[in-house]
Design a protein around this nucleic acid. Structure first.
Lengths: 215, 215
DNA sequence: GTCTATATGCGGATAGAC
DNA sequence: GTCTATCCGCATATAGAC
């Protein structure tokens, strides 16, 4: 509560956008939750839309910087060999889980918001976000390719895509488990199981040799 | 255009809810797209909320019935043995892909809407939906357990969860690829690759023997 | 069943005093 | 920077003629 108004607004917006969605959240609710005045959102951020941008920027920049830094460290550690597949996967998949552990409720709210974005197809905002993610992914692909020489590019991308899906579902699951308080899901152990699962999936021998259809 | 008003309303609502989300869609837009009167939604369904319920019910009931029917057929076919893991996975994972192929644009719209639901945590509607899905899942779990005797219940559930994540991400991907028209993703071949990937993940040897944490 | 017209409320944004 | 009061538009829903 000692945080600055704009920080409190960011926290409140993050929580409410994640909880109810962007459209369903009224600026009035945000300011009420932040103990701030109705006009403060427009004063500090210009508009409700720009507030959303700010919410993302605050969390995403550090996460992606960390992912790139860790990747460089890993490559350096194993030089001139390729890092093991499991280590690459851990570096790639870990950040959201780390957010979950380190940032507690705030991190959970942000991640739920993040998961929402994956579904939007049209908004300009989503396109900006996705371009950024693909930039990160492109740094990892060459290393995965070296670690998995039996896969051609298109199959590798497809399987990586499956792995990303497992990750985002796992994160969503942990979030819901926390919300519903049904069971305690430990992010760290889920991450390790996820690595086991996806590593096996990526290593699977080629069954159909590409994208050949039946019938 | 020859369909009844309520059918046209369902089609239009399905499309728009999927495209823009529930809140962001105005009843006015729905009736405009359906070539129907503004008041027709309330006349036929009672409210915008009940219209959403109807949109789901129309598609979901047949899909789940089919999933259960196929499972019974499969069990019968292999009796008294257990069906192979790949066949179980195909039966479990196929329905959304079939929707994608058979229902064309309508199916795509519905699936996008369906993916949205996975993220909502609080709404009563989502809870109803999720309970139904878990009922379906519970029919499959015992068979997966028999096909994968090296996994304990909790690990099996976790890995199945990863598999479901890969599926929903894959479906979302196909949808977006269609929308963005970037590349042509063939649902059938994606499904087969998905089965290969998830089967390998499920079969992976146990690495950590349960949910033991480091540190 | 379908239409027009309208009631009623909530949304984001802003003006202007402090 | 913060507040109150208010503008203005759009939302859902409904009343009531046809």
């Amino acid at each position: 509560m000692n945080a600055s108004t704009s920080e409190r607004l960011l926290d409140a917006a993050e929580f409410l956008f994640a909880e109810r969605g962007f459209d369903a959240t009224a600026v009035r609710e945000i300011t009420r939750r932040a103990n701030a005045n109705l006009a403060s959102v427009n004063y500090h951020f210009g508009s409700k839309n720009e507030l959303l941008d700010a919410v993302f920027k605050r969390r995403l920049d550090p996460i992606n910087q960390e992912r790139i830094f860790e990747l460089q460290r890993l490559v350096h550690e194993y030089q001139p060999d390729i890092p093991p597949l499991e280590s690459l996967l851990r570096t790639f998949l870990a950040p959201p889980f780390r957010v979950l552990q380190q940032m507690g409720a705030d991190g959970a709210a942000f991640l739920r918001l993040l998961m929402r974005v994956h579904l939007e197809t049209n908004s300009e905002f989503t396109l900006r976000f996705r371009a950024q993610f693909e930039q990160i992914l492109s740094r990892f692909v060459p290393l995965f390719q070296q670690a998995l020489p039996h896969l051609n590019t298109s199959l590798l991308n497809q399987r990586l895509f499956f792995a990303i899906g497992s990750m985002s579902h796992a994160v969503t699951w942990i979030l819901n488990a926390q919300v519903l308080a049904k069971q305690h899901a430990d992010p760290h152990s889920v991450l390790e199981e996820l690595i086991t699962f996806t590593a096996a999936g990526l290593r699977a021998p080629i069954a159909f040799g590409g994208n050949i259809h039946e019938a």
